[in-house]
Design a protein around this nucleic acid. Structure first.
Lengths: 351, 351
DNA sequence: CTGTTAGCGCGTTCAT
DNA sequence: ATGAACGCGCTAACAG
């Protein structure tokens, strides 16, 4: 008796049915495996009636080609790794949404890892992407490590929102310095001379450039830029609200505050509300990054709007371009422009 | 001359270096492939000094095991598919974050697909998960299709937040009926008799049960439940704000509105603000789902808080349990309890 | 303790 | 137009 088609293969007791394989389909259609492969893949010559028979058999058996086998054969895995710093932060969530949208439109799958801005976890994510033979990787870098590993192994990488400085990878980011300038110049234009800034990271170019834009806007206007007007919470082990409170108490002359990202904006907003400061009468506020809540509070929060969803989409497209070229070509760098949205939280200083 | 180890393999011109394979490692360490495999995998017997030599070689060559090969061999892919309806909605983003957290703690990778609540896209996602041999799938069902496909192929499935009704899959959800009751009973307790509800879907059990909870709370209090107090936006092709405006105009007796989810809460909040209605004096408002902005607006929005992050985490754990048992065991169903958070948006009716 | 062998599912030669 | 044979990288048998 020949090795019957009906032989139970991989008969685990888990209740999980063995998946139909190309061989099953071929046998059901009465052809060889290679013919079945051509019929389903659409390559090479296959007689029409055979093709139909194979397709019918595949449908009937619920055949789904095995990507791992195909990947092993040297073809693409169809997987793109994405590494973000904090999925609970709406900024990153929307970034991921933009990425996913572009990837899935191109037939790719997104493997999403949240590294919580931790270098160790980012490195683990990079290794995982390597192991699964991801066709490319998108990431908001925490440090150089992950990008270096990936680029070193020849995996196309595009950095989002900030750059690690590693050569050989594409990047898509916002013009952070200009965005900060827009915000601060607006305040200066209203007559503010004492403007504070609240930042929670200056280790990456994102925060650093926002700080830079803040400083140069003031300097260009001939205004002083005292260090004590800068609240840097990046070391912040302690209570951020308390540090902010101390900052405000120590700078009674401030008539406006620039929050360098949405998290800081939330912090500032809550603290001003807590202490009963009138906005904008007592203190004007501008945020970098415009979230939905900023138009719902009273007064609405003026903000530097970033095209976050598009940022993710553009980055994905840039990456897939490179993947399509098998990694060849010079590293590209795209800078998107932010836009200032004026609402009620900014007004001329009172005195 | 034997087939040299130094032969160039897969030499594409893309500038991408060939990855080190287990064979390369074995040759560099002067052993066979299986010994190298055992040394790195930690199974079976390997002499200590050999093991060290293999590990050193692997490190030196930057060896990363190929998951597709391992998967093909019948082992787990380490991939879990996750299908959500709208990644831009903070609810789903936080759900995904909770899932990711639990998965990555267990060494799994999350393949995230946003189906935009579209049945077609969900089906495509399910097929992709099948093709990549995902070890399990988590999803917020849009219809029965995707779950049926997956379960039919023996893939462990856990549904989140709502259920499709397909047998054989686990589920983790919120007690939506009870959450809605909490909200509406609170309003009734304050003295409201004319309470409206705004819903944007009743096709899933989530919205249906919230509506049910709303109705039964009123009924149990001996209050009437007129149809015109229910605004169902689920067919909503038109302008939702306009429909809401018409609803409010047509129900001048309403003293309170229950928004069945965070999107509806935003809509209601904006519309009340637009028309200058005082909250809570003119109209009390409660939301199902508590987002960050709800505590930042003035007055703060009373809301039914759901443990969204935990919901995702619990679902992931439930799924991984089943994956660990190779799919065996009865389908489990977990129901998490919501909690009413009182803020300033609810007060006794004016008259 | 180690090496040899076989095969996971697929695509791609090469002969028919 | 079709089928037989090989190998992608890895691991689980089995010898030695």
């Amino acid at each position: 008796m020949a090795n019957g088609a009906a032989a139970v293969r991989g008969g685990g007791s888990g209740g999980r049915r063995a998946r139909a394989t190309l061989r099953d389909v071929a046998e059901a259609a009465g052809t060889s495996r290679s013919t079945a492969s051509r019929a389903l893949g659409g390559h090479g010559y296959v007689a029409d009636h055979i093709k139909e028979r194979v397709e019918a058999a595949a449908e009937r058996l619920g055949y789904v080609p095995d990507v791992s086998a195909r990947t092993l054969k040297g073809r693409s895995s169809g997987l793109v790794g994405v590494l973000v710093s904090d999925l609970r932060n709406q900024f990153y969530a929307e970034l991921a949404a933009g990425v996913e949208h572009a990837l899935s439109a191109a037939g790719y799958q997104m493997v999403l890892v949240d590294d919580h801005a931790d270098e160790e976890r980012a490195a683990a994510g990079a290794r995982a992407f390597l192991a699964m033979r991801a066709d490319g990787v998108l990431l908001t870098p925490v440090a150089r490590g992950a990008t270096e590993t990936l680029v070193g192994h020849g995996v196309p990488v595009t950095e989002l929102d900030r750059r690690s400085g590693v050569r050989g990878c594409d990047a898509v980011a916002i013009d952070n310095e200009r965005g900060a300038r827009l915000a601060v110049e607006h305040l200066i234009g209203l007559g503010h001379r004492d403007v504070g800034i609240v930042v929670d990271e200056v280790q990456w170019d994102t925060g650093r450039n926002r700080l830079k834009g803040y400083r140069s806007a003031l300097r260009d206007a001939g205004l002083p830029v005292p260090r004590r007007h800068v609240l840097d919470l990046s070391q912040g082990e302690g209570d951020q609200a308390a540090q902010l409170a101390a900052f405000l108490d120590g700078n009674p002359a401030l008539t406006a505050v620039f929050a360098a990202n949405n998290v800081m904006a939330e912090l500032v907003w809550q603290e001003l509300k807590r202490r009963g400061s009138a906005v904008p009468e007592g203190c004007s506020v501008v945020s970098f990054d415009d979230l939905a809540w900023m138009k719902m509070v009273e007064p609405g929060l003026s903000a530097v709007r970033q095209p976050v969803f598009d940022l993710g989409g553009r980055a994905a497209e840039l990456l897939l371009d490179r993947v399509g070229r098998d990694g060849a070509g010079r590293a590209e760098s795209v800078v998107l422009q932010p836009e200032l949205v004026l609402r009620g939280s900014t007004a001329p200083p009172k005195n």
